[in-house]
Amino acid sequence: MTPLLSLENVSKSFFDGGRRIVVLDHVFLDVDAGVSVGVYGARRSGKSTLLRLAAGIALPDSGAIRFEGRDVARMSSRERGRLLRREIAFVSATDWRANPGESVVDHVATSLGSDGVTMREARRKAMRVLHLLDAAESAEESMGALSLTERARVLLARALAREPRLLVLDEPALLPSLGDRDRFYALLRGVAREWEIALLVASEEMTALQGLGVFVSIADGGLVSTESRATVVSLPGRRRHAAERVGQ
């Protein structure tokens, strides 16, 4: 069976001043339809890069990212737009900052606008999802006025409103109350199970991963996974070379 999303031999690096930092070094990762994957990693371990690649927001330096077997890098802008509109929803906790004055319902509704719906239809749908996530009472408030807990739910609602098949969440709930965090993750798991949405969640806290199907840790350019298929234990060429030399 073709996985919903697969990262094949993906590498990505950035430059830090003149120095090249390899964030992902020949990485493999599969996410099957309806399966939830949690990525644990310390700060600056490359979680966000991995997620942005997985969502098709950024493109890899080498390797391929496939959604249902189709290479995202080779898609046209319209197809990629469709991908983000219909298939993959990306949630980042800082997303809303471009327009802090927007009301909650509008914030959720605008994400539907790329699909040719009228504002009224979009609002109606947004309200439905907000109700579902228990966030309907703050529908008319402005995004900037919400509490972190409320905002986390609204951002989730915004992603869910598009009924994606894959939900990619980057550190969605570093909430002040531990109970709120637990509840948020339980809600997320519940919705994903019910709607049969695949999850890709990254956090710097392992508790955020609880209850997910596959655990992956990311560090030093590589992934370690409980699912052996995605586990990369082989050493990438460069390092093997180094290791061999040391071994002589």
Partner: peptide, 15 residues
């Protein structure tokens, strides 16, 4: 910033 955010919400280039 506004454009980037909308693109992440699935608005394509033409839109």
């Amino acid at each position: 910033r506004f454009v980037a955010e909308l693109r992440m919400q699935g608005y394509d280039r033409r839109q």
